[in-house]
Simulated assay, not measured.
Amino acid sequence: MSGLSPRDIDYVICATSSPDDLFGDAPSIAHAIGCDSARVAAFDLTAACSGFLFGIVTAGQFLGGGGGGDDGGGKNAIVVGQDALTRWVDWDDRNSCILFGDGAGAMVLTSSSSGGGGGGGGEEAVDDDDEGFGILGYAMHSNGGGYDDLKCNYRGEPKKISTPGEGTVVEDGSYDLMSMNGRKVYSFATREVPTVLEEALERAGMTVDQVDHLLLHQANIRIMEVVAERLGMPMEKVITNLYKYGNTSAASIPLALDEAVRSGRVKKGDVIACAGFGAGLSWGAAILRWG
Rank of each mutant, 00 (worst) to 15 (best):
G55R: 00
V79C: 00
G65I: 02
A77R: 05
L63T: 09
G72Q: 15
K75T: 13
L53S: 06
A84G: 07
G68K: 07
K75H: 14
G64M: 11
G74M: 13
G67Y: 06
L53G: 02
F52W: 06
G51P: 00
V80D: 01
Q61D: 08
L53Q: 08
V57D: 05
G72T: 14
L85H: 10
G51L: 09
F52M: 04
V79K: 00
V80H: 06
A77L: 09
A84Y: 08
Q82S: 15
T58G: 02
V57N: 06
G81T: 02
G66R: 10
D71N: 13
I56G: 00
L53W: 03
G60P: 04
G66W: 08
D71Y: 11
D70N: 06
A77D: 07
G68A: 15
G69S: 03
D83H: 05
G66I: 07
A77W: 11
G68R: 12
G69Q: 11
I78E: 01
D71H: 13
G68W: 15
G73H: 11
T58D: 08
D70M: 10
A84C: 12
G81P: 07
V57S: 03
G51R: 01
G72R: 15
D83A: 12
V79T: 01
F62G: 07
G69H: 12
V79W: 04
F54M: 05
F52R: 04
F52G: 00
N76R: 14
G69E: 15
D70H: 10
V80Y: 04
G69D: 07
T58S: 09
F62L: 10
L63A: 13
T58H: 07
F62H: 15
L85M: 15
F54Y: 12
G66Q: 10
I56L: 14
G74T: 09
Q82K: 07
V57L: 13
G60N: 08
S50Y: 07
F54S: 04
N76S: 11
F54T: 03
V57I: 13
Q82T: 12
I56Y: 02
I56T: 09
A59L: 07
I56S: 00
G72V: 11
S50Q: 14
G51F: 08
L85G: 05
G66Y: 10
G69F: 14
V80A: 06
L85I: 14
G55I: 02
S50R: 08
G64N: 12
Q82E: 12
D83I: 07
F62S: 10
V57Q: 08
L53T: 13
G65L: 03
V80S: 03
K75E: 15
V80W: 03
T58C: 09
F62C: 13
D83R: 00
D71P: 04
G65W: 01
L63C: 10
L63Q: 08
F62D: 11
V80M: 07
G65P: 07
I56K: 08
G69Y: 15
G55L: 01
V57K: 06
D70Q: 12
G73T: 11
L53E: 02
K75I: 12
K75F: 14
A59T: 02
T58I: 05
A59Q: 03
G55M: 01
G66C: 11
A59Y: 04
A77T: 09
V79P: 00
G74V: 10
V57E: 04
I78K: 01
I78Y: 01
